[in-house]
């Protein structure tokens, strides 16, 4: 059939297309353009030079920050996936349908409040004289330095991602065909072994998507590394802020931002490809 230009349909499509171009594609192209601008006497001037790219790529602190951000986001995603698993497993396989519905509803509640506020509440808990150290003090441990450390950063990331990961894992595992677990047991598979022989392979897509979300949210987060991690080791979002502040280097900040996007694109693409890959020949 020949495709006709449908005015009625276009009337509905145009606003969103317009919106996306104006506020997403436009700024993105502008950011790419800015990365070739130069800063002279603390003022940004139009140009087309590779000096910002060369400068950033040759700086040790950029690469340190780059690999640190990837590392800490990956670490936090791994921790989130592991911490969430027992809870998700219980909700998916042990809880009644009703309890599972309630649990998922309750897990959404953290998103009602600002992430920034929730992060600040960790101050009270993690501080040198905070709740956690006081409790550890009673059993003769500590005090431990938890604020302004990698630990603080990871705690912050988990605040953001853990409820989401539990939801995604639960929903994924609740859809696992219970007959397949019984079939594995019937063929001599021990109860615990069914987790990695059957449940995890069947949950692969959902788990990779959960881990990917976790990584993306952590990788781009500014709040946790800034307030709980104390910018000790600056992550890329902090580096962007620092770069714009020091000497109005918007073009170099644009380089960092583009590098972040390229990295996330690559990782997301690889993860999705992996998530939907099938075993055996077609």
């Amino acid at each position: 059939m020949k495709r006709r230009f449908d005015i009625y349909a276009m009337t509905w499509r145009l606003p969103i297309i317009f919106w996306q171009f104006l506020f997403f594609v436009g700024p993105l192209l502008f950011m790419v353009a800015i990365s070739f601008f130069v800063v002279k006497n603390y003022r940004m001037t139009e140009a087309f030079e590779f000096v910002n790219w060369q400068k950033m790529f040759s700086k040790g602190y950029f690469w340190d920050s780059y690999w640190y951000t990837i590392f800490i986001a990956a670490l936090s995603s791994t921790v989130a996936m592991i911490l969430a698993f027992p809870a998700s497993f219980a909700l998916a396989f042990r809880a009644s349908d009703n309890l599972r519905r309630w649990a998922i509803f309750l897990l959404i509640i953290p998103f009602f409040t600002s992430y920034l506020v929730r992060t600040f509440s960790w101050y009270v808990i993690l501080a040198e004289s905070g709740v956690l150290n006081a409790m550890l003090g009673y059993i003769g441990l500590g005090p431990f330095k938890m604020l302004n450390t990698h630990f603080g950063t990871v705690v912050g990331y988990l605040t953001l991602t853990l409820p989401l990961v539990v939801i995604l894992q639960t929903v994924t595992m609740a859809n696992v065909d219970k007959t397949l677990i019984e079939a594995a047991r019937n063929l001599g598979c021990k109860p615990l072994a069914t987790i990695w022989r059957v449940i995890l392979p069947l949950s692969k897509t959902g788990f990779i998507v959960a881990a990917l979300f976790c990584f993306i949210l952590s990788f781009g987060d500014f709040v946790a590394p800034f307030y709980l991690g104390g910018s000790q080791e600056p992550t890329l979002p902090i580096l962007i802020l620092d770069t714009t502040k020091s000497g109005q280097q918007w073009p170099r900040a644009a380089v960092v931002a583009i590098m972040m996007m390229v990295t996330l694109f690559t990782i997301a693409f690889a993860a999705i490809a992996l998530a939907y890959r099938k075993g055996g020949a077609k």
């Binding site: 065909d177 007959t179 397949l180 079939a183 392979p201 069947l202 075993g279 055996g280 020949a281």
Partner: peptide, 11 residues
């Protein structure tokens, strides 16, 4: 099994 319960992630 009635549903056969073959593992879809295996050959």
């Amino acid at each position: 099994w009635q549903s056969l319960a073959l593992f879809p992630f295996l050959s």
